[in-house]
């Protein structure tokens, strides 16, 4: 991470701007590191989302900054992280064991079964995923694979996985909301005391 910040700091100094790092995250599993930085002063400051170079999944800790210093293309910025950019660890079909709760037997026209529960087992890790979200077996199979990828992401990437990041984000927002409410209550209390209402 240090590389990126150094470059940014240098860049902001060159154009005599203020440079504040707001938060730094590893961008899901695309392997990039990113940091939200405020550049500029007061109302004219701009929020930038900066990216480092591409990392492979296995070398998460290595930082490689590909942003060239001292050029105008210091910062690529994106307003929002897009969810569809998420890349999960690849799923290898041969690692998976798929079972259907409907059981085996003659399929096709001969039988009319409605249980569409799909159970997937990832053999190397032993993770089991069940999916019964839809009435279509095919949709359930697709969704089960997606859930499996999410679970594998948490398994391999731990704290930095998509789910963990989303969870942290939720907690952060919750705390923020709570603080706002507390402040409001505090103000109300002060107001009441001042006016002698209580």
């Amino acid at each position: 991470m240090a590389g990126l910040f150094k470059v940014m700091f240098l860049a902001s100094q060159q154009c005599s701007h203020r440079f504040v790092i707001r938060k730094q995250i590893r961008l899901f599993v695309t392997g990039q590191y990113s940091a939200q930085c405020l550049i500029g002063k007061g109302t004219s400051s701009v929020l930038y989302q900066l990216y480092t170079g591409i990392h492979t999944l296995n070398s998460q800790k290595r930082t490689e900054c590909v942003l060239p210093p001292h050029s105008s293309s210091y910062y690529q910025y994106i307003q929002k992280r897009c969810k569809h950019e998420i890349e999960y660890p690849p799923l290898i079909e041969s690692d998976l064991e798929e079972t259907f709760i409907r059981g085996s037997g003659p399929g096709g026209q001969k039988i009319n079964k409605t249980s569409n529960c799909v159970m997937l087992k990832h053999l190397p890790t032993g993770i089991v995923v069940k999916c019964q979200e839809s009435r279509s077996l095919d949709t359930n199979r697709v969704r089960a694979r997606r859930h499996m990828q999410e679970r594998l992401d948490s398994y391999y990437n731990g704290e930095e996985s998509v789910l963990a990041q989303e969870k942290q984000e939720m907690i952060r927002k919750k705390i923020k909301r709570k603080n706002v409410t507390n402040k409001k209550l505090e103000k109300l209390k002060q107001f009441k005391e001042r006016e002698g209402l209580s």
Partner: peptide
């Protein structure tokens, strides 16, 4: 009604109910 892939189809007797195997056929 019943789902076929991402479609929801109306089903009424005595018309044959689509089976999950057919979802694979279209794939």
């Amino acid at each position: 009604e019943w789902d076929f892939k991402d479609l929801t189809l109306t089903c009424s007797p005595p018309v044959f109910i689509p089976r999950p195997e057919t979802e694979e056929l279209v794939d």
